[in-house]
Structures are given as C-alpha cells and as structure tokens.
C-alpha cells in the first residue's frame, strides 16, 4: 500500500514532464511574435519595442532544449506569462477564477450523485419494467443533449421566461458589497463566504445565480451515474446474500436499503472521481453559456482571442489537478473496499 503510493508519487513528475513537453512542442510551432507573450511578465515590457529586439532580449532563437528548460524554470517559479485577454498574469487569473469553478463543481456533484444513485436504484429494482425503460430513456436523452443546447434552453426558460435565474455569478449590488472591507473573503466561494459573514442576502443572490448552471450540469451527468448504479445494483441483487435476505422474509425495502445498496455503491465511488474531473473540465461550455466567471469562461475567452499563454496555463493547471485527484481516489478506493489490494 505504502509502496504503491510512493511509486505513484514518484511517477507524478514523469507525467508532468510529459505534459509540459507536449505543450511546449505545440507552442514551439508558433511564430516568435506570438511566443513572446509566454515569456513577458507584463505588457509594458513589450510595447514600443520591435520584434527583433524582443526576440534577442528573450533569446527566442535559442535551441529548443534551452528554451524548454527556461520555460520550465519559469513555470516552477509560478510565472505562466501574461494573459492579454484578462489583463493580468496567468497565475493571478487562474487564482481568481478557480474558486468560482470549484464552487460550481462542488454544488453540481451533490445533485448528480444523489439523483443518479436514486434513479439507478429505481431502474435496477424495476429491471426491464416500463419504469426502468422510462428513466433510462429520459437519462440517455439528456445525456445526448449537447451541453450548450441544454444550457441555452435552461437560460431561456429560467431567465428569459420566468426571470428567476439570472446569468453571471452575483448581482451588481452584491458584487459591490463583497468588495467592501467589512466583508471578509475566506474561500473565494461566494456562497460559503456569505454564510461565514452571516450575509444571507448575498447567499441568496449567489444561490440564485448558481442554480441554472448546476441544474444543467446535473441533467447532463445523471445518465452517467444512473448507468453505473443500475448495473452494479443489478449485479448485487442477483447475489446469494440478497436471496437469503429475501428468503428469511425481510421486506423488499430493508433488503434493498440494508443489504444491497451499500455493496452496490462501491464501484460508484470510483466513477464519481472521474465524473468530478469530467465536471471540472466540462464546465468550459456551461460557464460560457451562463457567463459564469470561472476557469472555463477564462479558457474559452482566451482561446477565441488567441491568448495562448492563458490557455496553456489553464491546461497545465488542470493536468496537475487531474494527476493528483486520480492518485487520491485510487488510494481512497482501497480503503473503502478491503478486497482491493494495490501493488
């Protein structure tokens, strides 16, 4: 177990090395003028200077290996370059936007997991009956929706018709309240900060804004959760110990809740992690649709304005998260399920 963790940790730098090489190879195909931005710490440095001078100043005609080492050196010191689309350094932009995305993802995970498990159990218990077919077709239909179409539809009904769920992250007045010195920012996640500051009006406003994107994400991911729970539940319901429980005369509710569900949920935990990562990466579209200022919106804005340093920075950031979360989940899985032995 311990040796497994150590081996995975030792492998972490190898993965990051591979990822940086890939990204560097992609960026190297750009002309020197576009590459300048990855090295320049602020925009003032590149104004009023001609191309040749910048290339000479930052040694952009060096051999690739030298340039790669210098770039990695910058990365390690947290310097990801200047993002022209958000007018700040990439590190600062990521730092500001990440809490928003994290908040959105955490809010979305709860309904997705609970709703997905609920639907999956219903589907399995009524295997091949009309209610099974109905839940599955509904979930697959939602899963077949392009995220932006569903998002736009939710926006159209929730904001356009009903006027309940506005786009963005906070209303203008709440935005101002948050900037005041009396409001202390703990996490950068507005709902939690508002709660800690006992500002329930701001909490309510933040919840109203976050509802529509969370609802959209939940609809998209229910099918995924349902599928895993259903298949795992069907497996468990065929096991001998469930048959025994039924044979000794327990009512169906107790059989399902006490005997089947716990064991059926073990595989669900692994999937939940890949879903969490899928959610974190998948928010690009949903954030763009709802104009929710997280990492996803940052990426899509940067990409359409050809702000390469920013896109590259976000990709690196996500790669690190991905590797670490996967490691944590693998270890956790072995703790939850004693049958799993990591080697």
């Amino acid at each position: 177990m311990l040796s497994y963790i150590v081996r995975r940790l030792l492998f972490l730098p190898v993965v990051l090395f591979g990822v940086t090489v890939l990204i560097f190879a992609l960026v190297s195909t750009l002309g020197p003028w576009m590459r300048v931005a990855t090295f320049v710490p602020s925009p003032d440095a590149e104004r009023h200077v001609d191309l040749e001078a910048i290339i000479r100043k930052y040694n952009l005609d060096d051999p690739p290996l030298k340039m790669y080492l210098r770039w990695v050196n910058n990365l390690l010191r947290g310097n990801l370059g200047w993002s022209q689309s958000s007018h700040m350094t990439v590190t600062e932009a990521i730092g500001r936007r990440f809490p928003a995305t994290l908040e959105l993802t955490l809010f979305a995970v709860i309904p997705v997991i609970l709703g997905g498990i609920f639907l999956g159990v219903i589907s399995a218990v009524h295997h091949n009956k009309p209610i099974d077919h109905a839940t599955r077709v509904m979930a697959i239909t939602l899963w077949s929706m392009p995220d932006f179409v569903l998002g736009l539809a939710v926006l159209m009904v929730g904001f356009g018709v009903l006027g309940w769920f506005p786009p963005g992250r906070l209303s203008a007045w709440a935005e101002l309240e948050i900037l005041k010195t009396s409001f202390r920012s703990f996490t950068g996640m507005h709902t939690i900060d508002a709660l800690l500051n006992l500002r329930f009006d701001i909490l309510w406003d933040a919840l109203r804004h976050i509802f529509a994107p969370v609802f959209t994400l939940a609809c998209l991911w229910w099918a995924f959760m349902l599928r895993i729970t259903r298949s795992s539940m069907l497996d468990v319901l065929n096991q001998d110990y469930v048959r025994t429980a039924r044979a000794k005369g327990l009512d169906e509710k107790t059989v399902i809740r006490k005997h089947a569900l716990g064991n059926a949920l073990i595989p669900v935990t692994t999937v939940a992690s890949s879903m969490l990562l899928g959610l974190l990466g998948g928010v690009v579209i949903v954030e763009t649709v709802f104009n929710y200022p997280g990492l996803g919106l940052l990426t899509s804005t940067a990409a359409t304005r050809l702000d390469v340093p920013c896109v590259v920075g976000v990709a690196l950031f996500y790669a690190v998260i991905l590797v670490v979360v996967n490691l944590v989940v693998d270890v956790m899985y072995s703790i939850i399920d004693p049958r799993v032995r990591l080697e």
Partner: peptide, 23 residues
C-alpha cells in the same frame, strides 16, 4: 502504458482548445 498515462492527464476539452488556439 506510462505514455498512455501522460496523454490521459491532459484535460480533454481544454487540450483540444489549446491545440485549436495554436493552429
């Protein structure tokens, strides 16, 4: 397989966006 792991550590949609914003 380690090569595969490296490619798996690329965030899917954002990886595509990186490529498209460069090329």
């Amino acid at each position: 397989m380690r090569f595969t792991d490296i490619f798996m550590s690329f965030p899917y949609l954002i990886g595509v966006v990186v490529f498209v914003s460069i090329f």
